[in-house]
Amino acid sequence: MKKSNFVFLIATSFFLSLVFTSCGDKENKKTDTQANSPSIHTLIFIDKTASVDVQKPFVAQKYQQALTSIIEQNFRKAGDTFEIYYIHENTSKARTLSLSCRTEMEDTEGVNATDLEAIKTNYDLSIRKERNFVIKQALNRLQTQNDNASNLETNITASIPVIARLTEMPGDTKVYYLSDMVESVKNGRDFQIRPPKDDAQAEEWAQADAEKLKNYTLNNPEISMILPFEPTSSTKENNPTVTHYWQKLFETLGVMTVTEN
Results as ranks from 00 to 15, higher is better:
95 R>G: 00
164 A>L: 10
141 R>T: 03
186 K>S: 08
119 I>Y: 11
163 I>K: 08
166 L>P: 09
69 S>Q: 09
147 D>N: 15
83 E>H: 10
81 T>Q: 07
135 I>S: 02
122 N>A: 02
171 G>K: 01
193 I>K: 14
117 E>M: 02
170 P>V: 09
95 R>I: 00
171 G>T: 11
186 K>C: 01
184 S>T: 03
107 D>N: 13
107 D>W: 00
71 I>K: 04
82 F>K: 06
96 T>F: 00
129 K>F: 07
130 E>H: 06
146 N>L: 01
152 L>Y: 04
73 Q>N: 10
100 S>Y: 02
162 V>H: 03
89 E>D: 09
154 T>K: 05
90 N>W: 00
133 F>Q: 15
178 L>D: 02
76 R>L: 14
54 V>I: 12
116 L>H: 13
115 D>T: 09
76 R>G: 13
64 Q>C: 06
155 N>C: 03
63 Y>L: 12
70 I>A: 04
187 N>V: 06
183 E>G: 08
93 K>V: 00
152 L>R: 05
149 A>N: 14
120 K>W: 05
109 E>C: 01
180 D>R: 08
165 R>E: 15
76 R>A: 13
75 F>I: 13
149 A>S: 15
64 Q>H: 11
98 S>Y: 07
51 S>Q: 05
134 V>I: 14
117 E>W: 03
106 E>P: 15
170 P>A: 12
54 V>L: 06
142 L>W: 07
110 G>P: 12
55 Q>R: 14
95 R>L: 00
153 E>C: 02
171 G>R: 00
76 R>K: 15
60 A>Q: 14
56 K>T: 10
159 S>Q: 02
165 R>C: 04
143 Q>L: 06
132 N>P: 14
173 T>Q: 07
88 H>Y: 09
71 I>C: 03
125 L>G: 11
179 S>D: 06
166 L>W: 09
189 R>Q: 11
105 M>P: 12
117 E>S: 08
93 K>E: 02
195 P>C: 07
112 N>V: 05
191 F>T: 06
139 L>Q: 11
111 V>E: 08
169 M>I: 09
191 F>D: 04
114 T>R: 06
144 T>N: 08
114 T>L: 10
169 M>K: 11
181 M>A: 09
73 Q>H: 08
155 N>V: 01
174 K>G: 01
60 A>C: 08
150 S>K: 04
174 K>R: 13
92 S>Y: 05
78 A>N: 08
128 R>A: 12
124 D>G: 13
